[in-house]
């Protein structure tokens, strides 16, 4: 910065309140307020209106009738079960692959840096691009992954995405795969922070590899693992784009999760009131699911 600019900056600071924190906080607060809090409150308000674009031009308060419609629809409960399976499945795939990955990458070799870079690819690639790549991999006529799955008897002639029994889990695999890099990097950072003295002390006490993993590594990465599970779980719970691009919730409703139902309620059924009620219910459900996970994983031993 040039001297003149710095002087001008100094004068600006002196004349307009110096280090007054309000100057620095207000823009962020206004943006957060406009982009997050206001729509959230508006959504909660809409959920008490049962507004339908087909019948009324403006929302009118109507109590809990939108909630009643959503909760009495059996499709909601089916989709809820599917969404929980989807969320748990996604996080399980992430943990099962990311934990060994992180442990491997924690061993310093000549290729560690390159491999760490490469595994970030799924995380930094947009969902739309990934989805089309996977559509090709799963294609019933030319998809290499489909050919493999067919050879081992997992699926029939057609893409798993067109199969009522295979569609959901074949997208869960993609959803989990996408989250692996994020979890791996977070775990790797934690692993690097574990002092090697702990393992040395453990081995003096006669602990084998498995024992030191269970008594040293696992307890120390558990808070990270818990926090990451919450982040990735919430992200999976609100998923929409991946499923929408791959199957639009089909075949039938076999891959319809709550995010898809929310979209269909608003856009196909043109019912913002019910869509808002569904969105509010999803928010409450996410809160209910998060608290026990955080409780369980933040306990220290």
């Amino acid at each position: 910065m040039s001297l003149a600019l710095r002087l001008a900056g100094g004068r600006f600071r002196r004349e307009f309140g110096g280090t007054n924190p309000w100057y620095y906080v207000t823009p962020a607060m206004v943006i957060v307020g406009l982009l997050t809090i206001a729509p959230l409150l508006y959504g909660i308000y809409l959920s008490f209106t049962n507004w339908s674009l087909n019948s009324s031009a403006a929302p009118q308060l109507e109590g809990v009738s939108a909630y009643r419609v959503v909760l009495s629809d059996s499709a909601f409960w089916d989709n809820l079960v599917r969404t929980i399976a989807w969320t748990v499945g996604t996080v399980v795939v992430e943990i099962v692959i990311a934990v060994p990955f992180a442990l491997l990458l924690n061993i310093r070799t000549s290729v560690t840096g390159v491999v760490t870079g490469f595994i970030m690819i799924p995380w930094i690639t947009p969902f739309v691009v990934l989805s089309y790549a996977w559509l090709f991999l799963y294609d019933g006529q030319s998809g290499p992954l489909h050919a493999f799955m067919q050879a081992i008897g997992l699926v029939g002639d057609s893409t798993p995405l067109a199969s009522p029994t295979a569609a959901l889990w074949s997208i869960i695999l993609i959803s989990g795969w996408k989250g692996i890099p994020f979890l791996t990097i977070a775990l790797l950072a934690t692993l690097k922070s574990i002092p090697t003295e702990l393992y040395e002390a453990g081995s003096i006490d006669g602990a084998g590899r498995w024992k030191s993993f269970r008594s040293i590594t696992l307890p120390l990465v558990r808070p990270t693992l818990g926090a990451m599970c919450v982040v990735l779980g919430v992200q999976a719970f609100y998923s929409f784009d991946l499923v929408w691009i791959l199957t639009q919730g089909g075949p039938g409703s076999s891959s319809t999760i709550l995010g898809i139902q929310l979209f269909q309620t608003f856009f196909t059924q043109a019912s913002p009131g019910q869509a808002a009620a569904l969105g509010t219910l999803m928010l409450l459900l996410a809160l209910v699911l998060i608290v026990p996970i955080l409780r369980a994983t933040s306990r220290r031993t």
């Binding site: 019933g140 006529q141 057609s158 893409t159 067109a162 089909g250 075949p251």
Partner: peptide, 10 residues
């Protein structure tokens, strides 16, 4: 009966 694409449903 396989007269359309195997992936026709998607």
């Amino acid at each position: 009966s396989g007269l359309t694409s195997p992936d026709a449903a998607n």
